[in-house]
Amino acid sequence: MPLVVPFAEDVFTWPSDKPQLIGCKCSECSAVFFPEQSACGRCGSTAVERELLPTTGTVYSWTSQEFLPPPPYAGGETRDTYQPMGIGLIDLEGVVMVEARLTECDPDRIHIGDRVEMVIVPFRSDDDKDVVTFAFKPV
């Protein structure tokens, strides 16, 4: 079995049976952000603590990414091999909204208001390892 590694560190808990996005919560004003950052984007407090985010939510909006994103995109596809992907703004149970890849990008298969759950999906295959990322999939 090749090694399965996340596409970036500290984005979601890994390895894990139930991976969660790693965000943060301000101890002063309770604002929640994703990913984790060193200070609160609302009040400027540096008293922010790691917060694991809900794995389910609702599609607030979405779009398709029909063309191969230019660098620094690191998915490894070429213009010929690239398949359009969906990108959504997901309301994680009223805690925070996050931008994320969707497993669907066809307007017949994904809609505003759909319930979705977080899944780990292939991102790129390197020589000796499978690189994975997070995405949301209709429930």
């Binding site: 596409f7 970036a8 984005v11 990913p35 607030y60 909006s61 979405w62 779009t63 398709s64 990414q65 994103p69 230019p70 660098p71 620094p72 995109y73 690191a74 998915g75 992907m85 990108i87 959504g88 703004l89 931008e99 890849r101 505003i112 990322t133």
Partner: peptide, 26 residues
């Protein structure tokens, strides 16, 4: 933005405009 934001293919203004108007149309 986080450094992985570009790696993930998210660092594109066009996808933001797509999402904003999609919700507005809805």
């Amino acid at each position: 933005a986080p450094s992985w934001y570009g790696d993930a293919g998210m660092f594109l203004t066009t996808k933001f405009f797509g999402m904003k108007i999609n919700r507005y149309m809805h």
